[in-house]
Write a protein that binds this DNA or RNA. Structure first.
Lengths: 179, 179
DNA sequence: CGCTGAATCTAGCACTGCTAGACATTCGAG
DNA sequence: CTCGAATGTCTAGCAGTGCTAGATTCAGCG
């Protein structure tokens, strides 16, 4: 309930508006109650982030239904749409430095799932390249585009072209298509 | 002087430690003096960011001396080293949402210069791809790697491999090398 | 000397995350 | 059925934040 309220508040007015007092007001409890359920504000943000990762993994999984050549594109578009449509959620997951363990075994399942979905989309085009490392590169490119776009640091009307270039550069098939 | 103090404080203890009071103490003035020179804390951060962009542009320019096939690599390594060695500066420039105009003509010269350096490094390998858009993609990939690495979200011991994959994917030469 | 205007200061506002201690309610043992 | 203990919640407060109003100091100039 606290997590949902925090997420809604962040999505409506941004994380700056998520103060312990406003959050307490929204869940209709007094402020200190939050601290009996979470260690602090960071822990709440972390919980929202993990929940968001589950949501992202689910959406990527749906996109996975689209097979064949456009599967990498489907994953990329899904990822970028998620970042665009849920900016506050994306922020908590990947921008704010909430120290969630990532690579390690004690990383939340939701995060591992999301990465796994990306990996599954990348694997078919990996060729002789290491799939995990290539997925990290794919993810980095998407993350860079997502955050720089959100910060209005890329030309807005070249989004499609950028995506085409990323996919073209990463996928072997496209490379072989080149004359 | 205020800008330098802010940058030093941020580089030593992170942006969280940069409060108007501590900053005032460091420059040996009282707090309100800051507001007669800058509109607010954001303006100070923005000034530090612009200064940082100039620094990045200068380092990229030095790297430009290295010609030929490895020029793209030199730019990428320089960029990532800057992000790694000056994390606070990088944060102000590209992570915190300080609303600096980016694409528009009234963007600070320093930023245009930095982007221009990346563009110059990308152009030789662009082929029939649009150089500006490809530079945006290159930048996004580097930015993604920089921020995800800083947030401990990528496997630390695969940095070189990731860089190789990015350069291999973007450069036409490498593509033609492929059997 | 007297004045003006710029520069600087002290004091304070409304807010933040977080916590100590008081209070109420509920539950289990006798 | 009673009564102590445990649980949950509250009010009040601390130290810190960005920012500002108003008082004060001090230089240069007529």
């Amino acid at each position: 309930m606290i997590i949902d309220a925090a997420r809604e508040l962040a999505e409506e007015e941004g994380w700056d508006a998520v103060t312990t007092r406003r959050l307490a007001e929204k869940v209709e409890y007094s402020q200190p109650v939050l601290y009996s359920h979470f260690k602090g504000k960071d822990a709440i943000v972390r919980a929202v982030a993990v929940q968001g990762a589950g949501e992202l993994a689910r959406q990527l999984r749906k996109a996975r239904a689209i097979r064949g050549r456009s599967r990498l594109r489907a994953a990329a578009e899904t990822y970028l749409e998620f970042a665009r449509d849920r900016p506050a959620l994306y922020d908590a997951m990947f921008v704010q430095q909430v120290d969630i363990p990532f690579g390690t075994p004690e990383a939340p399942q939701e995060l591992a799932d999301a990465f796994g979905e990306l990996l599954a989309a990348v694997e078919p085009v990996a060729g002789d390249r290491d799939p995990e490392t290539l997925t990290e590169v794919f993810w980095s490119a998407l993350h860079g585009i997502a955050t720089l776009t959100h910060g209005k640091r890329l030309r807005p009307d070249h989004h499609e072209a950028r995506l085409d270039l990323v996919l073209g550069a990463l996928s072997l098939a496209q490379q072989e298509d080149r004359p």
